[in-house]
Design a protein around this nucleic acid. Structure first.
Lengths: 224, 224
DNA sequence: TACAAATGATAGTAATACTATTATTTTTGT
DNA sequence: ACAAAAATAATAGTATTACTATCATTTGTA
């Protein structure tokens, strides 16, 4: 028997559920490949349609516009990561060890998860790093937020914030520290690869250094 | 006598120096207003030309495209901020007080600086918060970096990193902590106003809480 | 005054971000 | 197995964007 993980998505993000058809799953699969490869700015529904072998109008039946598609795949990633965190910290009782594990999961290059056949998580991870903040850095962020587009991201930060409070119930900034951990994990990764003067890391040693930096930052702050 | 601060800009960012003509200064002034008001995505040279009372072709004589114009005004801001930091920390000898002052300057809403008549720094500060990372989150970041487009930003982080080392010469992550401070100051501001679940701050109390959070984070880490 | 440089006015092109229409294929309910 | 419904493919069309090109006019400067 083949197990497939399904991430429940916000229904207002799409016009037709892409999980429910071959074309839909192809849209997800190829948009991840194309956005990762060419960047979100030069990604168009026309190019996507060509890559899939369908037409532009075909894509528009699933997604209103490319921004909603970006928000969809990014939300999917946060939902998947939350699942991973739940799974990988299940039997850890010590909150400090748990938080270390979360930092590791956030900062480490993801491997493709065979439980999700049409999504390549390692490509998606790179999209999160380079395009993640574009999901919310818009003039319509408040309306999008009302539509609950950022719920998976906020849920993830809530989970991280709760672990922080388990470590120290008196820590005064659990939400801000949680969102800072998530964002900095990805920012430092981007800087390490593209603007190395902004980090102390070299890409040969990979993400270990980012993990060490985040651990140092987070635990000195929590245990102050 | 009227004093004007001039920020030296990278000459490959523009086709014609906008500081040297009335039209050029108008391009800067109105692009700041327009980008802040409508967001970078819906900002076009056509709308800018209409706002100024010139033509699209007129703008293209100064800037190759809207991305370079964005990088220009953002770089200008970092250059101006570096000047401010130098000025406002000139007579501070204690590196801890100096770093606190830098954090305050980074996190506080900027007031319009009368020394720069065609630039409204408070609008520019809002652009940095909402659009700043779009300057480098592109597929051409490495070429842009080779052209030194991010030098003012990197110089600023270097300045902050050096102050961190003055506080603790053994601190292992001065560059990463510096870029983290700069980015988190703006991110938390954005979250506070637009995605409040991601912070512990309420916008009524303004930036003081962000400053407290950053101080707590930075100094517990440096003095560990 | 005269010459160059900057600006303005206008036009044009390829690509983008869609919407609409109709034909064809696939699914599904009976 | 068959009709109806739903999904997809094929095609066309529009407004806007992101430019480039040309030429006339204004402005500043030797």
């Amino acid at each position: 028997m083949k197990l497939e993980v399904q991430i429940k998505m916000n229904e207002t993000l799409y016009l037709r559920d892409p999980e429910q058809s071959e074309l839909g799953r192809n849209i997800i699969k190829h948009s991840i490949q194309l956005i990762q490869k060419t960047g979100f700015e030069s990604f168009t529904f026309k190019k996507l349609a060509e890559a899939i072998g369908t037409t532009e109008a075909g894509i528009y039946r699933y997604f209103e516009n490319k921004h909603k598609l970006l928000v969809y795949i990014i939300s999917w990633y946060w939902g998947w990561l939350e699942f991973q965190i739940g799974y990988q910290t299940k039997n850890i009782n010590d909150p400090i060890t748990k938080l270390q594990q979360v930092i590791k999961l956030l900062a480490t290059t993801v491997e493709d998860d065979i439980m999700t056949s049409h999504v390549d998580e390692s490509l998606l991870h790179q999209i999160i790093i380079a395009e993640g903040s574009k999901a919310y850095l818009t003039k319509h962020v408040s309306e999008d937020n009302k539509q609950q587009y950022f719920k998976p991201y906020k849920d993830l930060c809530k989970t991280v914030g709760d672990i922080i409070l388990e470590c120290n119930a008196n820590y005064p900034y659990p939400h801000s520290l949680a969102s800072t951990i998530v964002e900095v994990a990805h920012l430092q990764n981007f800087f390490m690869h593209n603007l190395p003067a902004l980090t102390d890391f070299d890409k040969t040693k990979k993400e270990d250094q980012i993990i060490n930096f985040l651990n140092h930052l987070v635990f000195s702050s929590i245990n102050k």
